[in-house]
């Protein structure tokens, strides 16, 4: 998928001594051309992409945990299979994204180190706990819905490998949102306690989902540059509005309410007005004070450390056998 170029060790390393030709780069972007790994590109563009793709990958990987939390307890075998496949897809999507980042001359291991040491972030949404089964539905419907709204325009991102990764991710994720909707639909048409469970999950996940689009446009310092570079195609608020407009009718179909008394159709704007988002909460969660920040990182680091002996063994085995093959030949 990352087509026509490769993230090999020596080949795609960034070459800072090569003079950067900004006019050619600007012309390429102006013509809606795609930037490919070994092209000359501004250092800021490269750094922005590395950071964004890495954090996107980290989000997929940390995102395995809140839903993985319910694999062992899924209430039917069908749901268990769907959930296992979905969490597995998230690992796969993280891998596609790390592969895209590696075309920019960074090592996945370094990016993972930066996640483990807290120098790189992941989406704050995954610091919320999944307290009931309905949360699995709410994540599929709202969180994946918001993610898809964000990701669809990224399929046209100016950086080829990122755009191609997004095409694959979006294609595979189409089932994620549907299964979440289906879980909630079944719950809201089930017993009263099931319906209450669904409503509670939506109440808790609605506002954090809106925060997934980031701060409002007038408070989003990097957005303008990302738009100019063709990395971002729409502003945070545009995407958030698109998500709200798409989701409100779906909530009605579910028979569930969204926890915002100010939510109402605005005929003039042709979209839904919604209440003020409490971004102080978002910033607290990003700062590490969300409900599960500590647990998510501890889980990830523990798995990585527990597996070190196996990774080392596989590498030692490969070296030994490469030597043996050589000495035979």
């Amino acid at each position: 998928m990352y087509g026509n170029d490769f993230g090999g060790d020596q080949h795609t390393r960034h070459e800072p001594d090569r003079p950067h030709d900004d006019r050619a780069f600007t012309a390429l972007l102006a013509g809606e051309g795609r930037v490919e790994p070994r092209d000359d590109m501004p250092e800021g563009y490269r750094k922005t992409l590395v950071r964004q793709i890495a954090q996107h990958a980290h989000s997929e990987i940390i995102g395995m945990q809140p839903e993985g939390n319910w694999i062992s307890r899924a209430p039917s075998l069908r749901r268990k299979a769907i959930l296992m496949a979905k969490v597995q897809d998230e690992a796969g999507h993280g891998l596609y994204l790390y592969a895209a980042a590696e075309t920019l001359g960074v090592d996945r291991a370094d990016l993972v180190d930066q996640l483990h040491s807290g120098r790189q972030k992941y989406s704050s949404i995954f610091n919320y706990p999944t307290l009931t089964w309905a949360d699995v539905g709410a994540i599929g419907w709202l969180v994946d819905g918001a993610a898809i709204t964000n990701q669809v325009p990224l399929c046209r991102c100016s950086y080829g490998p990122y755009a191609r990764a997004m095409v694959r991710v979006c294609k595979e994720e189409s089932f994620h949102q549907r299964q979440g909707f289906e879980i909630l639909y079944t719950l809201s048409h089930g017993t009263p306690s099931q319906k209450a469970m669904a409503q509670d999950a939506v109440n808790r996940y609605w506002w954090p989902s809106l925060m997934m689009f980031g701060p409002p446009d007038d408070d989003s310092p990097n957005s303008a540059q990302s738009m100019a570079w063709g990395i971002k195609r729409f502003s945070n608020d545009e995407l958030r509005q698109r998500f709200v407009d798409m989701t409100v009718p779906q909530a009605q179909a579910l028979g569930l309410t969204l926890p915002d008394p100010d939510l109402r159709w605005n005929d003039e704007r042709g979209g839904y007005d919604y209440g003020e988002i409490d971004f102080t909460e978002l910033f607290e969660v990003i700062r590490g004070n969300g409900p599960c920040n500590t647990e998510r990182m501890a889980h990830k680091r523990a798995a990585h450390q527990a597996g070190a002996w196996a990774r080392d063994a596989a590498e030692a085995y490969a070296e030994k056998h490469a030597r043996r093959t050589e000495s035979v030949a």
């Binding site: 990987i61 395995m64 945990q65 993985g68 694999i71 062992s72 268990k80 296992m84 969490v87 597995q88 690992a91 993280g94 891998l95 790390y98 889980h299 990830k300 523990a302 798995a303 527990a306 597996g307 070190a308 196996a310 990774r311």
Partner: peptide, 10 residues
Amino acid sequence: GWWISRAPEL
């Protein structure tokens, strides 16, 4: 199922 998110490598 326990292993998904806990394996030695992604």
